[in-house]
C-alpha cells in the first residue's frame, strides 16, 4: 500500500490486491464453488457488488464477475483457479498482477475525478456497492463504489500514467 497524495480533502493510495475474473453463465453450481472458496455469493443483478469483510464480488456484465480481495491476503489462488477451470464451460483467470489498483477517498473524491473523467458519479447513476467500467484519463478502468471510497483498477502497463494523472488532478 503506497500513499500517493493526501490533500484538498482527498486521499489517493495505490495498492496490491488479489483479483480473479470469472467468465461463465450464472448457475447454482458455479455459485456454490465460488462460495466454498471465498465464502461469498455471486451477485445476480448486473453491476451489483456483494461484500463480505475484505472480499468483494461484482457482476460486470451478463457473463462476467470480478472477485477482489481488498487486503491481498487470500492463499492458494492458483490452485483454486485450476480447480474452478476443471469445469469446461467456465474461464477463470488470475488478474492480480496484471492490474494496478488505486483507492480514492475523502469528501472531494468525486470533485477530483470529475476533472479526468466524464463518468456520472451522482448517487442515482452510481449507487453505493455498484461497479462500472469506463474511461478515466482516457484509459479503460473499472470503478467500484464502496460507499466511502472508490476502488479503481486498470491494466498494469497504464498504472504509472494513471498514478500521475490522479496526483495531477488533486494538485491542479
Amino acid at each position: 500500500m503506497k500513499e500517493l497524495i493526501s490533500s484538498n480533502s482527498v486521499d489517493v493510495k495505490s495498492l496490491n490486491l488479489i483479483q480473479i475474473i470469472l467468465r461463465s453463465k450464472f448457475s447454482d453450481n458455479i455459485n456454490q464453488e465460488i462460495n466454498s472458496i471465498f465464502k461469498i455469493d455471486l451477485p445476480k443483478e448486473n453491476l451489483k457488488i456483494n461484500i463480505r469483510e475484505n472480499i468483494i464480488c461484482s457482476k460486470s456484465s451478463f457473463d462476467q464477475w470480478n472477485i477482489i480481495d481488498l487486503l491481498g491476503m487470500s492463499k492458494n489462488i492458483d490452485t483454486n483457479i485450476d480447480k474452478l477451470n476443471r469445469n469446461k464451460e467456465v474461464l477463470v483467470t488470475n488478474f492480480s498482477e496484471g492490474q494496478s489498483y488505486f483507492e480514492i477517498s475523502g469528501e472531494n473524491k468525486v470533485k477530483i475525478l470529475n476533472k479526468i473523467t466524464h463518468f456520472d458519479f451522482r448517487k442515482k447513476m452510481f449507487p453505493n456497492f455498484t461497479s462500472a467500467q469506463t474511461l478515466i484519463a482516457r484509459v479503460d478502468c473499472s470503478i467500484y463504489n464502496l460507499e466511502n471510497k472508490f476502488l479503481i483498477t486498470c491494466n498494469r502497463s497504464f498504472g504509472n500514467y494513471i498514478e500521475e494523472r490522479l496526483i495531477d488532478a488533486v494538485k491542479y
Binding site: N46, S61, H118, M125, A132, Q133, T134, L135
Partner: peptide, 11 residues
C-alpha cells in the same frame, strides 16, 4: 443495455 446511459466516447 447492460451499463445504462453513457457518453458516446465509450462506444
Amino acid at each position: 443495455p447492460y451499463c445504462g446511459p453513457r457518453d458516446q466516447c465509450e462506444f
